[in-house]
Amino acid sequence: MTEQSYNFAYLDEQTKRMIRRAILKGLAIPGYQVPFASREMPTPYGWGTGGVQVSAATLTPDDTFKVIDQGADDTTNAVSIRRFFERTAGVAVTTKTSEATVIQTRHRIPEEPLTEGQILVYQVPIPEPLRFLEPRETETRKMHALEEYGLMHVKLYEDIARHGHIATSYAYPVKVEERYVMDPSPIPKFDNPKLEMAAIQLFGAGREQRIYAIPPYTGIVSLDFEDHPFEPTKADHPCGLCGAADSYLDEVITDDAGGRMFVCSDTDYCESRRAQGHRGKDAA
C-alpha cells in the first residue's frame, strides 16, 4: 500500500537523478567520495539518511528489499527503514539474503555470499577514513587527491608500538584498487575480506553529503604491515543456536551471574541453518 501523496520511494525524480549521477561517478572512481546534495529526510541524520537516499534512488518497483541493522532484520531501526519503503515505494520486502535484490545494511555484510545483480547499500556515519587524524575536510580532500596516506600508517604504527597489535576492530580502513583509502563503514573487521564480492556496493553518508561505491570484483586491501598482517577476528566460539563456526557472533548476557552465550549476528543466516537442521549447544 503506497502513500499516494509522495513520489515513488519518497524522493522526487530530480533528486533521484542527482543521486544516481553521484552513484555512477562513485562507481567510475571506486573509493572516491563524491559530494552530493543530501536532502533532509523524515528520519534523523545519523540514522541512515545516506543509505535511505541511495536506496530510494536505486529501487525500482520490481525490486525485493531487505534491511538489516547489526546483521538483524528485526532491530528497531531496520524495521523503521523497511516500513518507510513499504509505505513510500510499495516494494516487496524479504528477510532472505538470497531473495533480496537491494539490501540496505548498517554495520554488517551478510554471511551468505552476495551474487551478481544484487546491490548492497551501506549506511555510513563518517565517510572520511582520515577524519580522526585530520579534522579538516579541506585538508583530507587534498590528502586523497595527492594520495598522501602516510599518516594512516602512522596511526597503525602507533597502535602496534603501544599495544602490540593494530587496535582497530571495526571501520577498518581499506585501499580500493590500489588508489583511494576508504572507510568501509563501521562493519567489524571480520567482514573486510567480504568487501571483494560479486555484488555492487554503494555507500551513502547523508549528514556528511558523500556517496562512494565499489563495483563488483574490485580489489580491496585492508591496510596493514607486512610483519603485522591484517587479521579478521571474531569471538572464538561456534554459534549457540545454529552451531556455525564461520559467522560473526553477538555476545548475549543471559543472567547476572556471568552467564553468556554467543549467537550469529546475521539472523537470516542463523535461521536458515537451523531450518536445515543445524543445532548449537544452547539450542533446545
Binding site: 545519523g46 597489535h165 587496535a167 576492530s169 567489524p188 573487521k189 557472533l249 549476528s265
Partner: peptide, 21 residues
C-alpha cells in the same frame, strides 16, 4: 542532533569487536 542521538541505536557489532580486541 541526528548524529548525536544516533548513538542510542544498537552498536552490538562494533561493541562486540571492541570487546574481542
Amino acid at each position: 542532533t541526528g548524529f548525536l542521538e544516533h548513538i542510542k541505536l544498537p552498536h552490538y557489532v562494533d561493541f562486540q569487536s571492541e570487546l574481542e580486541l
